[in-house]
Design a protein around this nucleic acid. Sequence first.
DNA 1: CGCAGTCTATCTATCGATAGGCAGATGAGG
DNA 2: CCTCATCTGCCTATCGATAGATAGACTGCG
Lengths: 191, 191
Amino acid sequence: MMAKTKTDMREAVMTAAKATVQAHGYNALSFRELAKEVGIKSASVHYHFPTKGDLCAALARRYTDEGSATLTELLATSPDATWCLDRYAEIFRSALANDNRMCLCGIMSAELDDLPNEVRTEVEKFAEMNVGWLTKVLSRATPAADGQDLKDQAMAIFAAIEGAQLVARGCQDISIYDRTIRAYRKTGLIP
Amino acid sequence: MMAKTKTDMREAVMTAAKATVQAHGYNALSFRELAKEVGIKSASVHYHFPTKGDLCAALARRYTDEGSATLTELLATSPDATWCLDRYAEIFRSALANDNRMCLCGIMSAELDDLPNEVRTEVEKFAEMNVGWLTKVLSRATPAADGQDLKDQAMAIFAAIEGAQLVARGCQDISIYDRTIRAYRKTGLIP
DNA sequence: CGCAGTCTATCTATCGATAGGCAGATGAGG
DNA sequence: CCTCATCTGCCTATCGATAGATAGACTGCG
């Protein structure tokens, strides 16, 4: 039986913290509860992440990095923009399907004023990463389009999907998400 | 000098509470801070609103009622759907412009799991009210359209605008809201 | 030994909520 | 008009719970 390494422990803490934040938000994340979940004491969590800001900034950073990797892979898998955007919408859907959770950075955006600066920065980076990827996908579909227009549309798609997630979650009804995404497609917001 | 009536005090508490929730969310609303803002003690706030759930449910109910009144008036002022939707988008914009605040029920949706049931109910009613109004406006623009399609599009517009607000707030950049709404229009999500 | 990692124990701050008291307004019976 | 009970609105004081954070002891491994 292999003992847990420091890295394992960090991972375990981050995984549990991520789930809690996605379900309840930044403010509801408690070191004590978190420690209980991973089977250690809160002082030990502070050993790995000195402050709540450190933990959540690391959380958001990893969230962005993992998301970026996933999206990059999507982009490499198929040249079809519609297919890529379908997978993209599915990623956000899966958070809802998984215990009515939300996008980590989406829920943190709502709590913006309570976030330490280092976390705020990461939240913004997540948005930038998404918009960047969406812009790339859109430019495949309409290579002739104006750069700024593409960026604005990318931002609009990102915002619209975050909103669909937020509203569907608020109504605790995932079918709202599905119907909303379908409407986005139908109107042409999402190609 | 007229003394404050009970109703005045309730109003003052609710006004301050609304501002705090729109800026910081449900969890960040504290009876002590709230009391300090209106110049009384927290026990007195409990006198007017026995629990935090009571206060926030009242808050959301009034928010929905006032919104409903405003929207009804809009609908009566002009038969032009585009004009109505412009005003609608402006309402959500003004929250952002006012100290980077959010829709009361939008921000509460993000904290759904921490809300008492009575508050949750009100949050859902707010969404229903908005979707109902948007459906009416859309049916003016395209009276021949299918009822369910209109409803879905209405939901999509509501979600998209909430999302635009959320993302613009997260990036602390109101121009993101403006560009996103413009993209919604351009693609035809918003007529 | 010495360090890494976890622990116990504790601090300060704040939370929502409650108990109980106090001043001023109200209103009815004499 | 006067008095006295009642009500209103707010107060002080305090409760138990929980928050993030820290100090210092313990434990096991290299």
